[in-house]
């Protein structure tokens, strides 16, 4: 009998094991749903898969009377727009501020403690301030996302910059590089893969802020829809929406990972 950590599954077995929990969760839901539906056919808490499908087809293919839009696509478009704007602004801010502040000792001494304190402010706690300052429109939602994730990205980039070996920076100087040339030729390219990682890690938080902002005030969006139909206990909308959001988040994560692999082959080699 070996120690349990020394048993590793073969690739085929590994695949089956990976799928297993998903199957189990689906099966439990199906059993529970069938049992409830058998007692009360109009049960709203655990609808059948057929009703999920019907609802989603309806939301994706029929024009909603109130908004004159295909709701599923309209909601997805609004939420993704907010998410991408928020993430994009945060990434650019994180990259620029992170590199400049991380690389120039005077700026670092000035701003590092400030950013550290700033990143500890809970973004949702200042949401009312944002609503007051930026109104209830799109601006406050995007500022919320930026407020929530930019400090994290800035700090991450800054750490990455300071983790670059001093030897490299000295070497660059002995090759005659100016500060700008070191930033553009040594620091930036080496920080980029890390920035992509940090954006990947921020995806969850970004979705959280999008949904939170939409839940409070909005005219559309995935989070808005979920909180709207909650009043009618419409689990046939909420659950597929949650799965749809998860799928979108997964796809974005996957795309970023592929981007890092394609754009920075040297980083992969180094990691291996």
């Amino acid at each position: 009998m070996r120690r349990i950590i020394n048993y590793a599954p073969r690739p085929g077995v590994r695949l089956i094991l990976a799928i297993l929990p998903f199957v189990v969760v689906l099966a439990i839901y199906m059993l529970g749903s069938n049992a409830r539906l058998a007692v009360e056919p109009a049960d709203k808490l655990m609808p059948s898969f057929a009703s999920f499908w019907n609802t989603m087809v309806r939301m994706a293919t029929t024009v909603d009377k109130a908004t004159n839009q295909y709701l599923l696509w309209w909601d997805t478009w609004l939420s993704l727009q907010r998410l991408f704007l928020g993430l994009g602004i945060s990434a650019v801010l994180g990259l620029v501020l992170g590199i400049i502040v991380g690389f120039v000792p005077y700026l670092r001494a000035t701003f590092e403690p400030f950013f550290a304190a700033f990143s500890l402010i809970p973004p949702l706690a200042v949401l009312p301030i944002l609503f007051i300052l930026f109104g209830l429109g799109e601006a406050s939602k995007i500022v919320l996302i930026v407020f929530g994730i930019a400090p994290f990205i800035i700090r991450d980039v800054m750490l990455r910059v300071s983790a670059l070996p001093t030897e490299q920076i000295i070497k660059a100087q002995t090759l005659g590089a100016s500060t700008w040339q070191m930033i553009s030729g040594v620091v930036l390219p080496q920080v980029m893969p890390r920035l992509i990682d940090s954006v990947r890690l921020s995806l969850g938080a970004a979705w959280l802020f999008v949904i939170a902002a939409e839940a409070i005030t909005s005219e559309g969006g995935l989070g808005y829809r979920i909180f709207l139909v909650r009043r009618y206990l419409a689990m046939d909308v909420i659950l597929p929406y949650v799965i749809w959001i998860t799928l979108l988040a997964f796809l974005m994560d996957y795309a970023l990972r592929r981007l890092a692999v394609a754009a920075y082959p040297w980083d992969q080699i180094k990691a291996a």
Partner: peptide, 14 residues
């Protein structure tokens, strides 16, 4: 003044 250190004297991204 050129330099070669024990490690990290080359740029991994080039």
């Amino acid at each position: 003044r050129g330099v070669v250190f024990q490690r990290y004297s080359v740029f991994p991204h080039r």
